[in-house]
Design a protein around this nucleic acid. Structure first.
Lengths: 218, 218, 218, 218
DNA sequence: CATGAATGAGTTTTCATTCAT
DNA sequence: TATGAATGAAAACTCATTCAT
C-alpha cells in the first residue's frame, strides 16, 4: 500500500488554503471599508465566490473578522520573534525586534486598521487580539530586558514591568500616530526616534558607551 | 428700545445649552455602547426627550457624534493649555501639561473610547479630531520645546519635530495602552514612566542636573 | 379642569386599535398562506403599511402569530361562554355551547388553520394556545356536567374527567375533520351528529344487550 | 439465458431498501424537529451519507416528506385492516380496528407529528394523506357498519355516512388530543372512552326521556 | 419647538438544490 | 453511484431619518 497524501489530507489542505485566501481578501477589505461598511457580499464578490460559500469556512462575519486580526497579529509576532533570533548580543536582538515591529505595521497598514476596528467594535472582549499577542511577546522579551538590566546596560531603578510598559507604549503610540498621519515618516526615522528617546533615557551613561554603535541612526 | 438681551439672544443661549446637554449624554452613551450600537432612540431616551428632537439640534447621528468628540478634545486642549499657564519655568510647564493630559484621559475614559470609535468609523476624514487638536497643542508647545533646546535642557541633535513626535507618540501610546489594560496603572505612575523614559532620554546630562527636582517621582 | 380623554388615553386607544387591525389581517394571511410562507412584507403589504411598522406593534413574527392565535381563542372562549349564560336548564346550556363552538370554527375557519400552524410550528410549547383555553372552558363546564350526573341525566359510571375528555375529543375531531373536508357538512349537521352519538350513543338498547361483553372495559 | 433475479431486479431491490431506510430516518427526524427545522443535511447526517445522495432517491425535500407520511399512513391502514380480519362478529372486528388505530398512534407518535406537519405545510393539497387513507378505511368499514345497522345493533335513524363520520371524528380527535396532552392517557383508557361514549352514549335511558326535545335535530 | 409614528433601504444568515469529480 | 463544495434566492429584523400633528 503506497504511502502518500490521503483524500482527507488533500481536502484539509485545500480547505486551509481556501480559508487563508478568504482571510487575506477579507483583511484587505475590512481595512479598506471598515468592519461595518464591508458586507459579506463585498468579500465574496472580491473573491469571485458566492456569499454562502463564506459561511462554509467561517461561522459568521464576526468570526471571519477575528480570523483576520488573528492572522495579522500572528504574522507580526512571528516577524518580531524571528528578528530576535540568532547569536547576537541581547540589545542587538531587542533593537532588531523593534525595527521589525515598526516595519511590519508600516508595510502592512491594513493590520493597523484592523486593530482599531477590533478595538472599536468589541469593547466587551477584555483586551483585544493585539494585547493578547503583546502578552506573548512581552513574556519572551522579559528575559532579554532582565539580562540588560543585570549587565548594567539598562537602568535598574525601574521595575522591569514599567520598563516593558514604557517601550510597549512608545511602540504602540508610534505605530498608531504614524499610521494616522498617513505614514509621513519612514519606519527608519520612527526607529531612530524610538531608540533615541526611550532608550536614550533608559540606558545608563555607562551603557550608552557600550551601545554607541547600536543606538546610532541606521 | 431697551438695551439688553434680545429674544434672539435668549433663544440662542437656550439652544446652546440644549446642544451642550445633548452632547454630554451622547458622549457618555456612544462611549458606553459604541457608535454603531448606540442608536438615536437610546440618546433621546437617556435625555427624556423624543428622538425627533435630536434632529432639531444636530443634522444627523454622525454630526452629533462629531460634536461629542470635538467637545471632548476641546476640553482636553483647554486642560492641557491651562496647565501650561503661569509664571513657571518652561520645563515645569511642559511637565504639568503632560500630567494634565494623562489625568484628563484617566478621568474621562469615555473620550478615549470616542477617539477610537471615530478613528474606526471615519477612515475617510484625513486624520480625525484628535490629530487636529494635536496640531494645535503641538504648535503651542513648539516654543516651549524651542526654549528648552536653546537653554541646553533638551538635546539639540534631534530636529524639533522629531522631539515633539516622540513625546506625542509616547503620550498617545501610554493613554491608549492604559485604557486598554483597564486603567490598571494610576496616572501618577504613567506620568513617572513617561518622564523617566522619554525625558530621561531627551534631557542632556547637564539638563538632568538642573531638573533633578522636576523629573523625580511626584 | 375638565374631565375627558387625556392624550395618553387617546394614544393607547389608537395603539390598541392598530394592534387589533394588524392581528386581523395577519390572522387571515397566516391562515391563507401558512406561517412559513407568509412573510412580514406580505402582512404589511396587505395593510398598506411598511414592514418596519409591524415591529412597532409586535416584537417579531412569532409574537404577531401568537397574538393572532390568542385573539382567536379568546373570541372562541367568549362565544362558548356566552352561549352557556342565561336561565336555562344545564343540558340546554351545554348544548348551546357545543353548538356555539362548532359554529365559531365553521364561520372562522382561519382559526382552525392557525391552530394547526401553531401546533406544527411550536412543538416545544407545552400544549399550545388551544389547549390552554380548553383548560379554562373545561373548568367552567365541569360544574354543569356535575349537575347533570347528579340529576341522573348523564351516566355516573364514568369519571367526570373521562366524560369531559370524550366530549372534548369529539368536538376537536369534528372541528378538524370538517375543516379538512372543506366544510362539506354544515355546523347544524355536525351538531346533530355530536349530540346524537356522544350523548345519544350509537348502539340501540337491544344492541347493548348483545354487546354487553364487547363494550365493557378491557 | 438463466432464469433468476436479473441485475436490474437486484438494483431495484437495493434502491428500494435504501429508500426505505431513508424514509425511516427522515420520518423520525421530521417528527422530532418539524419539517422546516429539519434540513436535508440533518437527514443525511443521521444516515451517515452525503446530502447529495438523498437526491438520488427522492426528487426533493417535499417528496421525501410526503413519502414519510405516506409510509406511516400505509402502516396504519395495514394495522387497522389486519385487526378487522378473521372470523369474528362484525362489531368485534370494528372494536379491534378501533383499538388498533389508537394503539398505532400511541406507539408511533411520530406519525401524529407528521400528520400535523403535513396539514400545516401543504394547505393546497386537497386533503392530505391522512384523509386519503381515511377514505380507504371508510370504504372498507362501510359494509361492517351496514351489517350492524341491518342486524339492529346500531341505530338506523342516522345515515350511514353520519355514523362513519361520528366514529371517525371521535377517533381523530382522541388521537390528537391525547398526543397533545403528552399521552397522559393509555390507549386502553382511550379505547374505553371511545367505546363507552360513542357507542354507549353518555345520556342514561331515563335522561333520554327528559332530553327528548333537546337532543332531537334542530 | 416638540413629538413619536411611520418609513424602507440595507445586511446577515440559512438551506434546498446542483454538479464536477 | 456517491460525494460535498458551491450556489443564490429569500426573509427577519434594525434604525436613521422624516413629517404630520
Amino acid at each position: 500500500m503506497p504511502i502518500g497524501p490521503t483524500t482527507t489530507d488533500v481536502r484539509t489542505q485545500r480547505k486551509n488554503d481556501r480559508r487563508r485566501s478568504i482571510v487575506e481578501a477579507a483583511a484587505r477589505l475590512f481595512a479598506e471599508h471598515g468592519f461595518a461598511d464591508c458586507d459579506m457580499e463585498c468579500v465574496a464578490g472580491d473573491l469571485g465566490i458566492a456569499k454562502g460559500t463564506l459561511y462554509l469556512y467561517f461561522p459568521g462575519k464576526v468570526e471571519l473578522f477575528r480570523a483576520c486580526v488573528d492572522w495579522g497579529m500572528a504574522e507580526m509576532q512571528r516577524v518580531v520573534f524571528e528578528a530576535a533570533q540568532g547569536e547576537l548580543p541581547p540589545f542587538r536582538r531587542l533593537a532588531r525586534s523593534i525595527r521589525a515591529y515598526l516595519e511590519f505595521f508600516d508595510q502592512n497598514p491594513q493590520y493597523v486598521e484592523l486593530l482599531i476596528q477590533e478595538r472599536a467594535m468589541f469593547r466587551d472582549r477584555k483586551r483585544g487580539t493585539y494585547f493578547e499577542y503583546r502578552e506573548g511577546i512581552r513574556a519572551d522579551f522579559r528575559s532579554i530586558y532582565g539580562q540588560l538590566v543585570a549587565d548594567g546596560t539598562l537602568r535598574n531603578d525601574l521595575p522591569l514591568d514599567r520598563l516593558l510598559d514604557a517601550v510597549g507604549a512608545m511602540l504602540y503610540g508610534t505605530m498608531l500616530v504614524n499610521n494616522a498621519m498617513g505614514r509621513a515618516i519612514s519606519s527608519d526615522e520612527q526607529y531612530d526616534a524610538v531608540m533615541n528617546t526611550v532608550f536614550g533615557g533608559l540606558v545608563t551613561t555607562a551603557g550608552q558607551e557600550k551601545l554607541r554603535e547600536t543606538l546610532k541612526p541606521v
